[in-house]
Design a protein around this nucleic acid. Sequence first.
DNA 1: CGACATCCATGCCATGAGGTTATAGATCCA
DNA 2: TGGATCTATAACCTCATGGCATGGATGTCG
Lengths: 298, 298
Amino acid sequence: MDVDTRLLRYFTAVAEEGTLTRAAERLFVSQPALTKQIKQLEALLGVRLFTRSRAGMTLTEPGRALAARVPELLAGWDRTWREARSAAARESRVLRVGFLASAANEATQDIVAAFTRRRPGWRAEMRQASWGNPTAGLADGSVDVALLRVPFPGQRELRVEVLFAEERWVALPASHRLAEREPIPFRELWDEPFVAAPAESGRWRDWWLAADERDGRPVRVGAVTDQPDEWLSAIANGYGVALAPASAARFYARPGVVYRPVSGVSDTRVGVAWTPADDADPVVQDFVRCCLEHATPS
Amino acid sequence: MDVDTRLLRYFTAVAEEGTLTRAAERLFVSQPALTKQIKQLEALLGVRLFTRSRAGMTLTEPGRALAARVPELLAGWDRTWREARSAAARESRVLRVGFLASAANEATQDIVAAFTRRRPGWRAEMRQASWGNPTAGLADGSVDVALLRVPFPGQRELRVEVLFAEERWVALPASHRLAEREPIPFRELWDEPFVAAPAESGRWRDWWLAADERDGRPVRVGAVTDQPDEWLSAIANGYGVALAPASAARFYARPGVVYRPVSGVSDTRVGVAWTPADDADPVVQDFVRCCLEHATPS
DNA sequence: CGACATCCATGCCATGAGGTTATAGATCCA
DNA sequence: TGGATCTATAACCTCATGGCATGGATGTCG
């Protein structure tokens, strides 16, 4: 009668992947653990949910019936969970602000200061997200509002106000042959290995590799990093170069890494994003207004 | 992110009861266990869901928000769970038939035999329920169809076809002063202690105490029992008398217990019940048809 | 035909979550 | 002040969960 939602997630994972082994990888558990859990679910319901074969796991008729219902249940729980968490933040007068790396750079402090003035008693809690989480936690409800570089994957489901644009420069190892050039035509970087964001970040990754501005040439990826420090190390160690907002030269200065202007790539734009559910939330809207009033290109 | 539905049930119980102690009783767990679980849920969400006081537990604002959503989630899971179980039964060609005590008495075997003829390959699995479960498992989806005495609590949400009526007699200790009388006017039993069903059975309990046919006189309860054997023992030991269908004289004969006709109480009627969700289920409908054709008053 | 790859299943072990009982702490009431 | 009525904490036990190693079935390829 009682189930853990984890068990249901396991079930849908197996149903979708079609094999225990692959589902186990996706869920970051061992395959025997999954075997046991699925068996338990079957015992609980008193049904065979899958037919086993060399090829993997295929849903039975009752299994299909279950698989049709479960995602909706999980989504329902996810919604109320998210709602409760944001209610919690509201209760303690905390606005959770996600950001990615240096998102709003110098403007950030002004925005936060303005917000604190407008909402005395409230606190803006800044949460840095890794690049593997390109909405900085908005998508999973762990923040109320986010400062991001647009475009980013998942943008469609969210509200975004663009704050300002900023040039994209390139970060190079200090010893690089182009380290003294200024500005560098992007064309000359086409064949360089690049330091990229992880695959999860999808479109966002491509945009920072300027995949659309290479005239169809393929990208060479020299390293994949998830965080600013790794990113800087990878560049300093010569694994590759990378595009970065101009402000990175100030926020992520490091021996062994130089930043140079680039010509021939489009600007990056910084935006503030929130979920449609918060369109009427006065605190979120206040924060957005503070962003629009106090964010200026650096 | 993951929760056990048990945790959610615990939460709603505390929210509804208003104190941990009472909720713990209702859930059949100890109060410290509940304390821990509620704390865990709060930790999980990062919210205080209740404010504690000497008087008990009161929902906070986030708690109320959660309490508003959770019952729907639980109901959703309950539906799919039930669906899966009945899919399982269908898959293995088992019709689960609940019944209470001697519900359809002699007719039962005829019904089952007719069903087996009509649906070769299928098996009717008979499940006796205790009196604390007056729908014999229909309400919680553990059976597909039930043979019951009407009226019973929860009848509104179910479909019922009445099969036949039967007189109510009284079961008396053999040594009882009225044990030789025949028939006994019900009026003479008004002041006798009665052996009753547990409180959970609600309306059903009252009906077997003939609470409506006592001219407003209060009922004296001499013992509470949950099962036929306990019931028989209670009567044989002289804790009280009890109304019973006439067929009980054949099905529940026991030394020390005598059955006598009673005048002045209404008949009992036997029905077959199923859930509206199964209105279109051919197997359930076949069973119902078998009941209508083969059930005759004994 | 035998070695290998690819599935799922099983056995054993360590860990942790959830339960129980006993008891402490707080607060109200007579 | 003593008792009644809440919740919280401590100590302990049990069992489910997950990890690792390994077995068994089956298909594939040299």
